[in-house]
Design a protein around this nucleic acid. Structure first.
Length: 299
DNA sequence: TGGAGGTTCGCGGTTACATCA
DNA sequence: TTTGATGTAACCGCGAACCTC
């Protein structure tokens, strides 16, 4: 068996090439120089609504643009001019078509909103149909649950981009009839959930590693005892050299090296212990339908 | 050119609330 | 109807990166 255990940055091990990079990296990505594709974890099952939707009915704006596909949910097609992102680029579109989704999103959560607007919210100033009188008063914090459609759409977006640049955030917010702050928070929480889930998987994996190594250690101890017993009972045949365990830093294989050249007995071969444990690290795979990607990631 | 101050953003931790058994 | 558990939207504080002066 071969032991391959990594306790380093888990995200690095799971990186996959992104499918669509139609836009340049986000403003933040550029700033931070984070070129690694983010880990993506499909935590939420698709809602029935989404399952029933043909792919053309639920378009991620940047993906849609990249694929040059239909206009079902092209968030670049704003009904009204959207104020610019950080770069001052207007997102208003000559195709001012209101998406049918927008109406749906508006109907479910039209009641309450939360108070306590912070600095960011005030800066963003986004205000959809969901801001209520309570929010205007600003002291209550009523929690709203996103609709299935909204969650599914955000989920799809998350699969494409685990972080959003300001333009994407605004577009998504407009499309879903949410405030940009809500979209931002949703992505933050989603990233946190992904990380938490990955941590749980890692913990489980390390637990299994520990159990395996414990068992292996037990087996080797037993074997050592047997060899010692054999040595005492048959001293003339057990001229065993002392052995030391060494681990190759590159391949992480444990092997024993004889420190003496006394090779007087064939039993010596029995003392040569080379342990190779093989445990493939579990990986959270980004797309539930990406069998090929899963297979490649496992490799 | 280096530093101070401001801005923006993501993250970890936490809270508050809705939902369900 | 009540209650505890659970999931998650939202908040807060902090640090990092970047920008401007």
């Amino acid at each position: 068996m071969e032991l391959a255990l990594s306790l380093g940055d888990t995200s690095k091990a799971f990186t996959l090439p992104t499918k669509h990079t139609m836009e340049k990296p986000s403003h933040d990505d550029e700033r931070r120089g984070s070129s690694d594709p983010p880990v993506q974890l499909d935590l939420l099952p698709f809602s029935p609504v989404q399952r029933s939707q043909p792919s053309s009915q639920l378009r991620i704006p940047w993906l849609t643009q990249a694929c040059g596909a239909a206009r079902a949910l092209d968030v670049n097609l704003f009904p009204a001019a959207v104020e610019d992102g950080d770069d001052g680029t207007s997102l208003s579109s000559p195709n001012s078509a209101v998406s049918p989704f927008q109406m749906d999103f508006c109907t479910r959560n039209g009641n309450a909103e939360f108070g306590g607007r912070n600095k960011r919210e005030q800066q963003e100033g986004g205000e959809g149909c969901r801001v209520s009188d309570d929010d205007e008063n600003g002291s209550t914090r009523k929690k709203l649950r996103l609709s299935k459609e909204q969650s599914a759409f955000l989920e799809e977006s998350f699969k494409e981009h685990t972080t959003l640049n300001p333009k994407q955030k605004l577009a998504l917010a407009k499309q879903l009839n949410l405030r940009p702050r809500q979209v931002e928070v949703w992505f933050q929480n989603r990233r946190a959930r992904t990380k938490l889930k990955q941590t749980e998987v890692d913990c489980e994996y390390l637990k299994r590693c520990c159990e395996t190594l414990t068992e292996e250690n037990r087996r080797l101890q037993k074997e050592l005892q047997e060899l010692r017993a054999l040595k005492t009972s048959q001293p003339f045949y057990m001229q065993l050299p002392a052995t030391t365990l060494t681990m190759c830093p590159s391949c992480e294989r444990v092997a024993t090296n004889s420190t003496t050249t006394n090779q007087t007995s064939n039993v010596n071969n029995g003392s040569q212990v080379a342990v190779e444990l093989s445990l493939s690290k579990p990986r959270i795979l980004p797309f539930s339908n990406g069998k090929a990607q899963q297979a490649q990631a496992i490799k």
